[in-house]
C-alpha cells in the first residue's frame, strides 16, 4: 500500500498536474508536494505527488554503486 512510482510532470494547473508514467498520463494532486516544475520527476502515491525526485542524488547513488564494482574488480 506504500507503493509510490516516479513520473514526469508534463503540465501544472494550480495544485493539479499531469504526470507521465511509462507512456501513460495520470492526473495528480500537488497539494502535498514541495514546489515542483514541469519536466521534474515526482513520486506518485494514491493520486498525490508526495515528493520531487532528486535526479542528481539518483545519479550519485548509481555512481557509488559503480564504484563498489570497481573496487571489487581491483581487490
Amino acid at each position: 500500500m506504500c507503493l509510490a512510482i516516479p513520473g514526469r510532470v508534463i503540465e501544472i494547473d494550480g495544485d493539479q498536474a499531469e504526470v507521465e508514467i511509462g507512456g501513460i498520463i495520470r492526473r495528480a494532486s500537488l497539494a502535498l508536494c514541495p514546489p515542483v516544475r514541469v519536466g521534474q520527476y515526482v513520486l506518485l502515491h494514491a493520486g498525490f505527488a508526495i515528493q520531487v525526485v532528486d535526479e542528481e542524488e539518483a545519479q550519485e547513488t548509481l555512481r557509488l554503486l559503480q564504484e563498489i564494482g570497481d573496487i571489487g574488480e581491483i581487490s
Binding site: P6, V53, G69
Partner: peptide, 23 residues
C-alpha cells in the same frame, strides 16, 4: 522506465552481492 530500470541492473547487483560476501 526512467529512475526505475537503472536500479535493476544485474551487473551492478552482482557487484553488490560480491561486496556483501567480502564484508
Amino acid at each position: 522506465m526512467k529512475l526505475v530500470s537503472e536500479f535493476r541492473d544485474p551487473q551492478l547487483a552482482a557487484h553488490l552481492i560480491k561486496a556483501m560476501y567480502r564484508t
